[in-house]
Design a protein around this nucleic acid. Structure first.
Length: 204
DNA sequence: CCACCATTAAAACGCCTATA
DNA sequence: TATAGGCGTTTTAATGGTGG
């Protein structure tokens, strides 16, 4: 589920390995800034998915993603390679989504996925249907999480960003990030069980 | 005052890698 | 191949803030 894409441009696969931001790297790092077109092509699904999972409704999704890439286009030359490109992009996505949330709240039209809509999917091939239902369920459960936990959960678990980067992006202590992630996982599992139990009950 | 929750620091654990 | 060390992650306990 991770966007591999252009991550190689900034080296470092997700997970282990020395962190590019680790102190003591006295040697100058040659930062290869990728072309905007390549970034757009490679990371559009990543940004789209991230914004969706952070709670942007279908109606505003295109605008939010567009806004992200407008900023990326403007700021790409400032990318220093201190984190991976996907982390940098997610930071921008996060700020745009938060702005969107504030405006949506002001307009009293925060967009959420109606959990009941889980059962309104149009008929089709069973596999497509199952996938669509799983996607809706995921978003319905994510909508139940508090924003702070949702952000950590989406970045760390769903997009596989390293916790150090997640914490830095959110401006929190890394252990706080882990505590939130743990709480989010527990809440997610509990919600998943609730949804499954409700489905089984309805199918009787 | 008390209970609850979030945050933080520290310790413990497990995995990976470099080296002999 | 065995082992030491590094690093990321998890767990636990302490602390502070907030609401009833």
């Amino acid at each position: 589920m991770t966007s591999e894409g252009l991550d190689h441009v900034t080296e470092r696969p997700h997970g282990t390995g020395p962190r590019p931001s680790s102190a003591g790297a006295g040697a100058a790092r040659a930062v290869c800034v990728p072309a905007f077109d390549d970034v757009y092509r490679e990371f559009f699904p990543f940004v789209w998915r991230g914004a969706r999972r952070l709670g942007v409704g279908d109606a505003a999704l295109d605008d939010v993603v567009q806004e992200v890439f407008v900023i990326v286009h403007r700021r790409l030359h400032t990318f220093e390679g201190r984190s991976s490109l996907s982390t940098w992009l997610f930071g921008i996505t996060l700020r745009v989504v938060r702005d969107h949330r504030r405006h949506a709240a002001r307009r009293r039209e925060r967009e959420t996925v109606d959990p009941d809509s889980l059962h309104c999917a149009a008929p089709g091939p069973s596999e497509l249907l199952e996938r669509e239902q799983a996607r809706r369920r995921l978003h319905a459960i994510l909508d139940e999480l508090p924003d702070e936990r949702r952000e950590v959960f989406v970045m760390a678990d769903l997009e596989n960003l390293p916790m150090g980067d997640v914490a830095a992006l959110l401006g929190i202590n890394v252990n706080t990030g882990y505590a939130r992630l743990r709480a989010a996982r527990q809440a997610f599992e509990a919600a998943l069980r609730r949804h499954q139990a409700r489905d089984e009950w309805r199918l009787r």
